[in-house]
Simulated assay, not measured.
Amino acid sequence: MSQNSLRVVWVYPDLLSTYGDQGNVLVLERRAHQRRLDVQRLDVRSDQQIPTSGDIYLIGGGEDRPQRLAAERLRRDGGLNRAVANGAIVFSVCAGYQILGHEFINDLGQREQGLGLLDVISTRGEGERCVGDVLADIDPQLGLPPLTGFENHQGVTHLGPTARPFARVRFGKGNGTGDGTEGAFNETVFGTYMHGPVMARNPHIADLLIKLALDVNALPPVDDRWYEALRDERIAAASQPA
């Protein structure tokens, strides 16, 4: 990959793109263009093969049946696993996050095999659905400001020993386990329950993915006034007493 180009793959927009998650692709493209990077974007529908030559793969959320179909097709295809083996970066949201784990509960109430790219297992929660604004502190290792987003899920995701929590919640449910964790990550694969779209609220996540893909420590600064205004608004809203 050239230091001046980036190949971005949006996985199954026809199945996994709820709550404006496609906005993550737009924000990532915008942040890359602001750094004068040439972005090659490929939207891969569920009847197409997943290319293995991408630098960053983005996966959104979806309803239960589309999630099962997506998992079946991604397992059969194998391209995303091969891309990760080649060093690609993956960022997933909600249903996409669950698919990247070892297993989740599908729309038929059965255990559905995931891709095993994150050491997590998702079950179905017995209590209230996790819905509402979230404010969380991202793992200090990643060097990012607090996470703000919107969650809407019944799933509960348990982290295994090789997965680290993406963040720890101040407000909200996150993984739904009651331990304050939100999302999970390893060196190149990230998962979160945050919609919003999450990168519009947290553009520094897009910057992190770009840096990892380019293997650089820093990016040129950009004008973040619009993003910061949105962040301040949502953080203030999430901090209000219920």
Rank of each mutant, 00 (worst) to 15 (best):
L147H: 07
D139W: 01
H153G: 00
P145N: 04
G149A: 06
D107M: 03
V156M: 05
D133P: 06
R124K: 13
H102M: 05
E151R: 05
L100E: 00
P140T: 00
V134T: 14
G101P: 06
E128F: 12
H102T: 14
N152L: 05
G132W: 04
L115M: 11
G116N: 07
Q141H: 11
D137K: 07
G96Q: 13
G149W: 10
D119L: 12
L115F: 06
G149I: 01
G149D: 00
G109F: 09
E103F: 14
G143F: 04
E128G: 11
V134C: 13
H153T: 00
D133Y: 14
E112H: 02
A136M: 02
G143E: 08
R124P: 04
Q154G: 06
I105C: 12
R129Y: 01
L135M: 06
C130R: 15
Q113L: 09
H158K: 06
G125K: 05
L108Q: 09
A136R: 03
Q154Y: 12
D107L: 03
N152C: 01
S122Y: 11
V134A: 04
D119T: 10
S122G: 12
N152M: 06
Q154L: 15
F104V: 09
F150V: 07
E151A: 04
L100Q: 06
N152D: 12
G116T: 06
G109C: 08
E126V: 12
G149N: 02
G125R: 10
D137Q: 08
A136C: 09
G114D: 00
Q154I: 00
H102N: 13
G127W: 00
Q154T: 04
Q141Y: 05
L117Y: 04
I138H: 02
Q154D: 06
G143T: 05
L159P: 07
D133C: 07
F150Y: 13
I138S: 07
D119M: 09
Q141S: 10
R129N: 14
Q154V: 00
T123S: 14
V156E: 09
G143N: 13
L135D: 01
D137W: 00
Q141W: 13
R129Q: 14
L117H: 15
L147C: 09
T123M: 10
D133L: 13
V134Y: 12
N152G: 07
L115P: 02
N152R: 00
I99H: 10
V134I: 14
Q98T: 01
R129S: 07
R111M: 09
G160C: 10
Y97F: 15
G132A: 11
Q141I: 14
Q154R: 11
E112R: 07
I105P: 11
V156A: 04
D137G: 03
